[in-house]
């Protein structure tokens, strides 16, 4: 029974399971209509599968020349392209493991940092009545209006002003001190580091996480907390011992939703990072397409595209139930 109510709450599950019980009593579909609708469904399936089969076939091909004719069904299963991409993903001196590490560091780090800060704020907004509540809530909401690219200019300039330079012996930390004009060698530029990109990415991740978690906390019944408060628990104890454990599933969902987004993050790293050793997988994929791709065999590009897509697709499919119900219970309602 619980499983049933659970499934009706969730669009994807509902989408996949719908109507199976109702068909039993329903009237039969006339054969000619069945055939007509089957043809339609197959045409749509072909449309969906066209690019997927194209890229899968390409990635399993061992041919390094560009495709001369259309192939949508693999004629060979060769992992050569995957092997080449993993051995030597780009012309830059960076290994696949390092790219993977950078992408994971960025998406997991930003996700966790935003989550830890956001859950505190969400708790305050959801459970307390205080003077500035509505003003502060609007302040958290405003950045969500701005397309993420809109803040990239000032974030670039700000991060760029934190530098550590070696002025021939003395170390100068900008913006507090700098070497004489024309002197000094920059050892570290916050803008040109994964840390700087991560900090900049939090600016969009945080408001989203606050709204998503607040929406969920609002749905948790308050009786438990009230009972604990009567027993003498202070708000901190209530938060750590009751609210946090109850919110754990939603924390996980918010984290994975963030992860899906951060894993694809391209604009900020591509703008900030100049050192190949801090590149991410999505930046590498960009380098394999279009004007940069002249020398890159398409089977390798295809393999890389599938590698970049896999973590997101797997997360989605594994957590589809939680993700969709998490989305509907959270942020949207505000």
């Amino acid at each position: 029974m619980t499983a049933h109510t659970e499934s009706t709450k969730n669009p994807i599950v509902r989408f996949l399971n719908m109507n199976t019980s109702r068909e039993v009593g329903g009237r039969e579909l006339p054969l000619w209509r069945q055939i007509l609708l089957q043809v339609l469904c197959l045409v749509i399936a072909a449309e969906v599968l066209f690019p997927i089969m194209y890229i899968v076939t390409l990635s399993f091909s061992s041919r390094e020349t560009r495709p001369a004719s259309l192939e949508l069904i693999p004629t060979e299963i060769s992992f050569a392209a995957y092997k080449q991409v993993i051995d030597r993903p780009t012309a830059n001196p960076i290994t696949f493991i390092e790219l993977l590490r950078n992408s994971f560091l960025l998406s997991v780090g930003v996700g966790l940092a935003a989550l830890m800060i956001a859950v505190l704020a969400a708790y305050a907004f959801s459970r307390f009545k205080f003077k500035l509540r509505s003003v502060l809530m609007v302040l958290v909401f405003v950045p969500l209006l701005m397309p993420a690219i809109g803040l990239s200019t000032p974030l670039y300039l700000l991060m760029n002003s934190f530098r550590i330079a070696d002025c021939g012996g003395a170390i100068a930390i900008s913006p507090f001190a700098s070497c004489a004009v024309g002197l000094g060698k920059v050892m570290f530029n916050l803008r040109d580091s994964l840390l700087g990109v991560g900090i900049a990415m939090i600016s969009t991740a945080l408001p989203f996480a606050v709204w998503n978690l607040k929406g969920y906390l609002d749905t948790i019944p308050k009786e438990l907390e009230e009972a604990a408060a009567i027993d003498g628990a202070d708000p901190n104890q209530v938060f750590f011992q009751i609210v946090l454990p109850l919110a754990l599933p939603q924390l996980a969902v918010t984290f994975f939703l963030g992860f899906i987004g951060h894993w694809q993050e391209f604009a900020l790293p591509w703008l900030f990072l100049t050192q190949p050793e801090s590149y991410t997988l999505s930046m590498t994929l960009y380098n394999m397409t279009g004007q940069y791709a002249n020398s890159i065999p398409w089977n390798r590009f295809a393999a890389m595209a599938i590698i970049v897509a896999l973590p997101v697709a797997i997360t989605y499919i594994a957590l589809q139930k939680q993700i969709v119900s998490g989305l509907t219970s959270g942020g949207v309602k505000g």
Binding site: L16, A45, V48, L49, M288, T289, A309, I317
Partner: peptide, 15 residues
């Protein structure tokens, strides 16, 4: 039919 939802738009665009 659900497949396009789970693939990152950036990969879709490159393909």
């Amino acid at each position: 039919y659900i497949l396009p939802v789970v693939i990152p738009p950036l990969v879709v665009a490159t393909v």
